[in-house]
């Protein structure tokens, strides 16, 4: 069975990610052990929390993660996705993992929109990718975030519009990321997790 490690860097909702991956057919394990990670088929970088705190906690795992992503896929979810980018602008400017070119920016303030962008919104598939195999265009997925990925179209897999169009999922080589929470997006989300597992 495909073994996926959910990287435990001290933040985030790890349990639901684990349950989602299991439901989608993987053997999932929460771990902060870098040897355990090195032996896994895939890694999920989960995601609830603040950018600076996440990067700080991830600091000592960074080099192992870089080594890992050379030949195996990583899926960042929400904050986990944001940290894949070059730089984040939450509570100051902080360096990200730089696995996907781009920046994490706060939504522009607009009186007719609430921030965070919280709830179910559509994804427009802008690039064919195994991660979205069998996913209907404009499917609803669950978002909770105040910051968004600002990246180029070649790294964008899906686009969502809220205040401004933004990359709701990204990819550069083995680094995949979704701004939304697949583990919280019902059957659509479980299918995306299953697709990730099938990549491994």
């Amino acid at each position: 069975m495909t073994r996926v490690i959910i990287l435990d860097y001290g933040l985030g909702n790890l349990r639901s990610v684990k349950k989602g991956l299991e439901k989608a057919g993987a053997e999932a394990q929460i771990s902060s052990d870098l040897d355990v990670m090195a032996s896994a088929d895939g890694v999920v970088l989960p995601g609830v929390g603040a950018f600076s705190e996440g990067m700080e906690k991830l600091e000592k795992m960074k080099s192992a993660l870089y080594e890992y992503v050379k030949d195996r896929p990583v899926l960042g979810i929400c904050l986990g996705m944001q940290m894949l980018l070059d730089v984040g602008e939450e509570y100051g400017v902080h360096e990200g993992l730089k696995l996907v070119p781009g920046a994490v920016r706060h939504f522009p303030v607009n009186d007719s929109f609430k921030i965070p962008h919280m709830g179910w919104n559509n994804i427009e598939i802008t690039q064919k990718s195994p991660l979205f195999e069998g996913i209907e265009n404009q499917s609803y997925v669950y978002f909770v975030h105040s910051y968004y990925a600002d990246t180029k179209p070649q790294y964008t897999l899906t686009k969502t519009d809220y205040i401004c169009p933004f990359a709701s999922s990204i990819r550069n080589k083995n680094a995949y990321g979704t701004q939304f929470h697949p583990e919280k997006s019902g059957t659509t989300g479980l299918k995306i997790l299953e697709n990730f597992i099938n990549l491994l």
Partner: peptide, 9 residues
């Protein structure tokens, strides 16, 4: 709480 887990939490 917001600083540790993010505002959205």
């Amino acid at each position: 709480g917001a600083e540790k887990f993010g505002n959205q939490c």
